[in-house]
């Protein structure tokens, strides 16, 4: 995917292959600017314009890119839904939350106002909000951050989507509330069998919810595989570096290992492997060509010529 006007396009995502089946969670990990949110927006059909998207995008066998805007809009919200980091900017500040949840059912399922209102209260109860009938009449600003995130989840699951994309849904929350929201998402997934794409920079959070992981760097996937395998036996030097740099409770080190430098912006992506300038294992060949994704076993893949060799 490229973003920006035709004369000044930046390739923000390059050559990404993702496949996700029902009931599974894919954790997408990376630092700011790595393209993880853009990937989500591209799947949702919400990428900022002007843009150019190449390749294929299929949802339950349908080609999303060939779909007219109307059909895509129907799909969005009903079949695939998304929740964001900061619910305050995603919710309408002057409309009671119950009305905002009910709106989903009126728009997508043709529910009557009364049915929608009743369903909104039930959904609020489902996402663990106490006293749902009263909270349905509240405006977003009257709720705590955790409750606002619950409201956004209620909106997202109102039409029982088959895919839920969660973009840093707990980053703005305290650890205790974060645990509550993660539990809620896991329970909802267990009950509905929806697939989830869970985007976060926090490896611990991803570890708590993901079945599979994709690590992104500068718009490309650098490693994919089963979550626990990738997190305990990382193959790509970037993944290994990220995990090593995290301070861990119970294992105190005098000096933390670091990845030198800062994450690279896709606009200034160096030739060859984008991570080469920060990599401890770099050899001249790394800068020659973009390393392809190579299988390292039945399920783990990494884009690094040093580990494949």
């Amino acid at each position: 995917m490229k973003l920006g006007p035709a004369h000044d396009r930046v390739e923000v995502i390059a050559g990404l292959d993702i496949s996700l089946s029902a009931g599974r969670t894919l954790g997408v990990v990376g630092e700011s600017g790595c393209g993880k949110s853009m990937t989500a927006l591209a799947i949702m059909g919400l990428a900022p314009k002007p843009h150019a998207i190449g390749g294929e995008l299929r949802f339950a066998g349908q080609d999303l890119r060939a779909m007219p805007d109307d059909a895509r809009r129907q799909l969005r919200g009903a079949e695939m839904a998304m929740i964001f980091q900061e619910p305050m900017t995603a919710l309408n500040p002057v409309v009671p939350v119950g009305v905002q949840i009910g709106e989903m059912l009126i728009v997508h399922e043709g529910a009557s106002d009364a049915d929608a209102a009743r369903a909104a209260v039930a959904l609020l109860e489902r996402v663990g909000i106490a006293d749902p009938a009263r909270r349905a009449r509240a405006s977003p600003h009257e709720l705590s951050g955790g409750m606002r995130q619950r409201v956004m989840i209620a909106m997202a699951i109102a039409c029982k989507p088959r895919l839920l994309i969660a973009d840093e849904p707990t980053t703005a929350l305290d650890v205790s509330v974060q645990a509550q929201i993660l539990d809620l998402l896991l329970e909802l997934q267990r009950d509905t069998g929806m697939a989830m794409i869970f985007i976060s920079h926090n490896l611990g959070v991803v570890s708590a919810v993901a079945d599979d992981i994709m690590v992104m760097y500068a718009g490309r996937a650098v490693e994919t595989g089963p979550a626990q395998l990738v997190l305990t036996a990382p193959a790509h030097p970037y993944t290994a570096g990220l995990i090593a740099t995290l301070p861990d409770i119970g294992h105190r080190q005098k000096i933390l290992p670091v990845i030198e430098g800062s994450p690279v912006n896709p606009r200034n992506r160096p030739p060859g492997c984008a991570f080469a300038p920060r990599c401890k294992l770099v050899i001249p060949d790394c800068r020659a060509a973009v390393p392809p994704m190579v299988a390292l076993g039945p399920s783990q893949r990494a884009a690094c010529i040093r580990v494949a060799a």
Binding site: A179, Q180, L182, L186, E187, S207
Partner: peptide
């Protein structure tokens, strides 16, 4: 207890504060 950690596997819902 709420701090998510790596390598402890997927969360089992239910013990959040």
């Amino acid at each position: 207890a709420a701090v998510p950690r790596i390598g402890t596997g997927k969360r089992v819902p239910g013990d959040a504060l």
